[in-house]
Computed example of a mutant assay.
Amino acid sequence: MTDTKTDVVLFGTGMVSEVISVYLDRYSDLNVLAYTVDRDFLPEGGTFNGKPAVPWDEIERHYPPGSVSLLGPLTYKGLNSVRRDRYLEGKAKGYAFASFIHPDCHINTDAIGEHCIILEANIIQPFASIGDNVIIWSGNHIGHHVSVGDHCFIASQVGIAGATTIGPECYLGGQAGLVHGITLGARCAVLNAAVVKANLPEGSVVSGEAAPIKPFPSKRIAHLL
């Protein structure tokens, strides 16, 4: 980190914004100057986390382009469409967007797009590429020659085998697994713990099955544990 910090306005006033604010404060050269959110979700009193919170439709009046960068929204709401739309709106207004990559990552590619948030303990292997406006939560493996499209959200403990292509606006839930060399079309939703072994057409939903509860108590297997 440098002595000079870049001022950012963070989009969102919820728990995830609180979490990302801590990461930025501890591990980045970004200074959260204020928060913004759609007017219907503006917090009472116009403050959040001890700093100003302004409506998105007035952000240019309070923090004009060139004076700050933007970061967020930090959400997969609407299958990433909310984050996509606000990102495109912000660019149309003339704002630059910041990125955050946690220092405790092993990233072996330079092909990382703009406005990406990559949290700790991620492994991204050589020849992988990450698009614009992508959020990658903690502890994932993204294999060699994988392509992740724009506006995707990858939760935690996801394993993506090499040479897999993930289309734009996809959501990969926690502990999902994708085998080698497959292609996911745009706006696919791979839910928690699902395993994908074949190509998915655009807009597909894949859900894993919960393990059934066994019809005997845990004391019966105590000698095994």
Rank of each mutant, 00 (worst) to 15 (best):
T4E: 05
D7T: 15
L10A: 06
G14N: 03
V16W: 04
L24T: 11
D25E: 06
R26M: 05
Y27T: 07
Y27C: 09
D29Y: 04
L30D: 01
N31R: 14
V37Y: 02
D40C: 12
P43A: 02
P43K: 04
E44V: 14
T47H: 08
F48Y: 13
V54K: 07
W56P: 09
D57Y: 01
D57C: 07
E58R: 15
E58I: 15
I59C: 14
G66Y: 03
S67Y: 02
S67P: 06
S69V: 05
L71V: 15
G72L: 07
L74I: 13
Y76S: 12
K77M: 08
N80D: 07
S81T: 12
D85R: 14
D85I: 11
D85T: 08
L88P: 09
E89D: 14
A98E: 04
H102S: 13
P103D: 00
C105T: 15
A111I: 12
I112F: 10
C116N: 12
C116T: 15
I117C: 02
I118H: 02
I118Q: 01
E120F: 09
A121P: 03
N122T: 10
A128E: 00
G131K: 09
D132A: 06
D132I: 10
S138K: 12
G139E: 03
G139I: 11
H145L: 06
V146W: 00
D150A: 09
D150T: 11
C152I: 13
C152F: 03
S156Y: 01
S156E: 02
A161R: 03
A163G: 12
T164P: 13
T165V: 13
G167M: 06
E169G: 13
C170I: 11
G174R: 01
A176M: 10
G177R: 03
L178Q: 04
V179G: 02
G181W: 00
L184T: 11
R187H: 05
R187G: 00
R187I: 06
N192C: 08
A193H: 11
V196G: 11
L200I: 09
P201K: 04
P201L: 05
P201W: 01
V205K: 04
S207G: 01
E209Y: 05
E209K: 08
A211P: 15
I213N: 05
I213L: 14
I213M: 13
K214M: 10
I221T: 09
A222W: 01
H223Y: 06
